[in-house]
Design a binder for these strands. Structure first.
Lengths: 162, 162
DNA sequence: AGCATTCACTTGACTGAGCAAGTAATCGCC
DNA sequence: GGCGATTACTTGCTCAGTCAAGTGAATGCT
């Protein structure tokens, strides 16, 4: 008689799957950063910030909203925006509606930067991920990713950073 | 007539899939680190090092081999082992066979540490990933992950860190 | 209206990772 | 067998990220 115990170690297929995923978790972000760094002197995270601003109305977002889009803590975002600001791609303004909020605003040269960086990044995502998979696999990957994200959100003992 | 151009931006299903995966890439490592940090004062990377040693003959591996197993650069590994050494879980010895190699050796208390940390980590992997997926999805995830890893390895302009 | 509280960041101290330069051990070649 | 590569790390510097404490703006309670 077998019992569906909570497992105390990963074995067999589970271990292999986890090992494969863990490798992706380690290498894919590094590969993405590498391309963006080489071609646009941007980390993937910084690109994400610029991209989110580029797709926002008036190229403007409150820091706290932006940190949500970028899956980031406010302090990480604050430092990243400082860097982007010093390179002239973003500027900050207090929100006239409520001075506690800070608006991050994409500058014209920031927009140019995103536009230049986007094709290379999109190509890399295709080359490393999308083009390697069958269409059903792409769908599965989306569903699998969402399930994992939901599981993380559900965890009572851990809040994803905002 | 449509042409299969190299795309210059991600749109539609591709964008959604990529966004979902990017979220996993951001949150899953953080969630894993969070549990291990809380329950065992270990990063996921440090756990991986101890785990690899625990499963090696004589609980011993050359630094360069270990860095392969841990998907890490030698310099990152060197620093991690320094930390683990200072906590008494690993010790270093020059390889008697060839003094250029350094052997990393798991201590008894290091073994105890891995054994204590493993069930909680395995549970977290189940809770966040494996238990959320159907069996076919687990298989697909393994295959998808391997394809992505292979794609990264193929890239001529980027070598995965050893 | 006045003052403590809350909110939305920002910043200082510290840690971990990458890169490149350094170091010690061994190998290869004459 | 001596000496210039090569190999296998290690380490100094710099930078990004976290945590916790700090700051300035708005809110609420009386």
């Amino acid at each position: 008689m077998t019992t569906p115990d909570t497992p105390t170690a990963l074995v067999g297929e589970d271990l292999e799957t986890w090992a494969a995923l863990a490798t992706v978790l380690e290498w894919l972000p590094a590969a993405l950063d590498s391309q963006l760094q080489r071609d646009a002197q941007l980390t993937h995270f910084e690109y994400g910030v610029l991209y989110a601003l580029a797709n926002a109305p008036d190229s403007t977002l409150r820091m706290s909203v932006l940190s949500g889009y970028a899956n980031s803590s406010l302090s990480r975002l604050s430092r990243a925006v400082t860097r982007l600001e010093s390179r002239g791609w973003v500027r900050r303004e207090p929100d006239p509606v409520d001075g506690r909020f800070t608006l991050a605003i994409l500058t014209d040269s920031g927009r140019t930067k995103v536009d230049e960086a986007t094709p290379g990044h999109a190509q890399t995502v295709h080359r490393l991920v999308l083009d390697r998979l069958t269409k059903p696999q792409v769908r599965q990957l989306r569903e699998i990713s969402r399930r994992i994200t939901r599981a993380i959100g559900d965890g009572q003992e851990w809040e994803p950073p905002r």
